[in-house]
Design a protein around this nucleic acid. Structure first.
Length: 243
DNA sequence: AGCGTCAAGGCGTGCG
DNA sequence: CGCACGCCTTGACGCT
């Protein structure tokens, strides 16, 4: 889905990602849709509490499961986000691990809207028994992950475009050579003055240097050249159309 | 030990 | 000016 979508966006190869990768510089309520959730864009519900086999923590699901501070929990489950409070945490930066339930709820919420307004944040924090700041951070990191993923998809897409264009270029070079040979065969004596150029706008072969002054032979040549370039109108082979 | 993941810190920026 | 955000980085942790 991702790649196809990119194709349909009309992303222009030479101009970077502007059409697909909108840089999310606006606040949440301005462009809520820049981050598309890919179907396979799994949140990485890490096995939560590692100390426990299987990572499943019994007891209260959302009530501070992973994080928070009970004395006998593994040290990584201690809370102390940012602030001072907590007892045991020596200044150290904790490592809060969100529980499966917390993660999945956050994920659900993220699917509905990738950004939060203050009220939503508060509500979610209450619901998850987390600090609003933690919810905010989670969303920020989640957006970053999504963007990274999208960047990777776009990168793959551009690689394919590059390969297509490279092939196309090779083909065209070859064709130019053939046309030159053809022209040489038709006008062996004028070859020094004759040069084939390709009009960048119409992509057709034209003569430069005054080879032919309008006689029939040269016209035949040009029509032949034009014929050989019909693929430019073919959406399947036109690189820009493919991209 | 090295690496990947992820929550959180810090900083710059745009906007009302 | 404060707020929310994005981006980059840091540090804790798990895995191999």
């Amino acid at each position: 889905m991702g790649v196809d979508d990119s194709c349909n966006t009309g992303l222009v190869l030479s101009l970077g990602f502007s059409s697909t990768l909108q840089t999310p510089s606006k606040p949440y309520n301005k462009n809520p849709s820049f981050l598309k959730l890919e179907p396979n864009d799994e949140p990485s519900l890490t096995l939560a509490l590692s100390g426990v086999a299987g990572g499943v923590k019994p007891a209260s699901p959302l009530s501070g499961v992973s994080s928070f501070s009970s004395g006998n929990k593994p040290k990584r489950e201690r809370e102390l986000s940012s602030d001072e409070d907590e007892e045991g945490t020596v200044n150290g930066r904790k490592k809060l691990r969100l529980s499966k339930e917390q993660s999945s709820l956050l994920e659900e919420s993220f699917k509905q809207h990738s950004t939060l307004n203050p009220k939503q944040k508060q509500a979610l924090a209450r619901q998850l028994n987390l600090k609003p700041r933690q919810v905010e951070v989670w969303f920020q990191n989640r957006r970053a992950r999504t963007k990274l993923k999208q960047t990777e998809v776009d990168c793959e897409f551009l690689k394919k475009c590059y390969e297509t264009l490279t092939d196309e270029n090779r083909r065209l070079q070859k064709e130019v050579q053939e046309l030159k040979a053809l022209k040489l065969a038709a006008h062996p004596f004028h070859m020094q003055a004759a040069t084939l150029t390709i009009c960048p706008s119409c992509e057709r072969t034209a003569a430069a240097g005054g080879v032919s002054d309008g006689d029939g032979n040269s016209k035949n040549l040009f029509s032949l050249a034009s014929k050989t370039h019909h693929f430019y109108n073919n959406p399947l082979t036109n690189p820009s159309a493919a991209c």
